[in-house]
Amino acid sequence: MNRMKKVYPFTAIVGQEKKKKALILNIINPLLGGVLIRGEKGTAKSTAVRALAELLPEREQVCDCLFGCDPNDNSSMCDSCTEKKAKGQKFGTVLSKMRVIDLPVSATEDRVVGTLDIEHAIKYGEKKFEPGILAHSNRNILYVDEVNLLDDHVVDVLLDSAAMGVNTIEREGISFSHPAKFILVGTMNPEEGDLRPQLLDRFGLAVDVVGERDTAQRMEVIRRRLEFEEDPDSFALKFEGHQQELRERILSACQMLKKVRYDDIILDMAARISIELGVDGHRADIGMIKTAITIAAYNHREFVSGEDMLEAAELVLPHRMRRRPFEEGVMELSRVEGIIEAYGVKSN
């Protein structure tokens, strides 16, 4: 990627702190369940996601495994790795970067879930599975631009595997299943139509972005963009320091993550917030706590604070507010704030 085309550095994006934070939190803790970025056109939605690739940490994966299995995680390994491990075979591991896998809106179902390998079938008369996008996205970021325009049946299969972390294929003579745990990142412009609530709920976090309103900021946006287009390399070099700093911060947060503790009162708070705001199901509560923990880790703290909870609520709840089809899902942050304050934990 580096050699082909320079990507606009993540740290060079002006403003949009919430969006950047949401993306970073997902890298630190892949269990958060992805981000949905909603906003007008031209608000650096796609730029930010693509820029993320540069920051992604390296992690261990099994050599030659189609799905890039984690050699230390028995529970979500593909069949062939599990078999090897059971036989006591050692497998070679490589360090490789997490990647951003694109799911284009025009993608066909067979390319998404995988299909019969035609070439192999003709040459050898054997059936072989040709992995699709979901296979590549295991342990990576699956990026869907304009996710609300995705074809209905593709959304259905996406839901299926997003929920289970497993892609099951029963089609075109192939019967196969493989791990498909991915961080789902979607961008959409709400003017183009809505996303189905079921898919909406699968996104762990959601942020709404708007263009900068401040003139000085807007000018800075243009200035940087022009500068980047003129000479991408030296522009990137200029931000290399920031980039490195952020990379290190992410890495240390990853290590920190397991150590973060939280009070019982924090759990109480999450439950109370969900009940008061009338959120469907329990995914929101769980998401809120996980996000708060990740925020604490990112801030290099070992303890979840009320402030973390507020920030987490802001990311986890907005897209889950809607209860009825046409009721506007307005999130009243002040109510969340009130609840948190009532617990005596300062939210400020």
């Binding site: 439950a271 009940i275 329990h282």
Partner: peptide, 23 residues
Amino acid sequence: GSEHPAERKEIIKRRLEYENKPL
């Protein structure tokens, strides 16, 4: 979904514990 804060709390707790160390 449950409407009782205590139940909801326990649900979160169990889920997090599970995710931490499934086996």
